[in-house]
Amino acid sequence: MKVALLSESPADETALRVLVTAVLRQPPQFVAPGFRARGWPNVAQLMPAVLRHLHFNTDADALVVVVDADDSVVHTEPHEAPGYFHPHCRMCQLRAVYRQTTKRLPPAHGRERVLRMIGVAVPAIEAWYLCGRDDQVTEAAWTAGREQGALPYTRANLKHRVYGTDRPSLPHEIDCALREVQRHRRDTRRLEHDFPGFAALAADLRASGARQNVT
C-alpha cells in the first residue's frame, strides 16, 4: 500500500510512520517528501488540494491526516451517527472535507478514490507519546476535565513532560517522539483504548488494509 502523510511537523511525521506501520503490521510505502501544513485550520484548507494531487498525479492509495485537537470539541460516539456533523469537531470537519472533495472525482490510476485515514490527537500528539507512561493522560481524562472546568494538564505541560523543555530542537523532538512511540510498535491496543482519536485512525488503516487484500 502506498500512503501519503499530511502532518504539522517532521517530528509528527516520523512518529506517524512508526504508528501507521504498527497498525498495518507491515511497512507501507510512504510518499516522500511528506505533505506539511501549518497547523489548524491550514490542514483543512490544504486537504482538498492534497487529495486532488494524490488522486490525479500519483498512484497513492491513501492519505493519512493527523491533527491536534487543541481546545476543539472532542469527537465522541454520537458524532459517528449517520449524517451527524459537529461543526467544531476536527474529526467531523476533516471527514466532511474528504467527502466534499472526493465525491465528484472521476476514477484515476485504477482506483475510485484515495482513501482517507484521519486521526485527531487530544489535545496534542504529545498526549499519544505519553500513553503507557502516564496513566493520567488519556482522552477521557481531558474530556472529563473540560466538562468539569478543570483541565488535568495543558498542552504546554504535555510538551514539557515529553521533551524536558518548552523549546526542544527539531532533532530532540524527533528523538523523543521516536522513543515514545516505540512502546506501541508491536501493539497499539493501549493507544487505541486510551485515545479514540487514534483508534479512529487505526480503524481507517485496517479497513484500507482489508480492502487492499480483497482487491
Partner: peptide
C-alpha cells in the same frame, strides 16, 4: 532553533 540555542542554552 539555532537562535534558541543562543538564548536558551540549557534547553540544548
Amino acid at each position: 532553533d539555532a537562535l534558541y540555542r543562543l538564548s536558551y542554552p540549557k534547553a540544548f
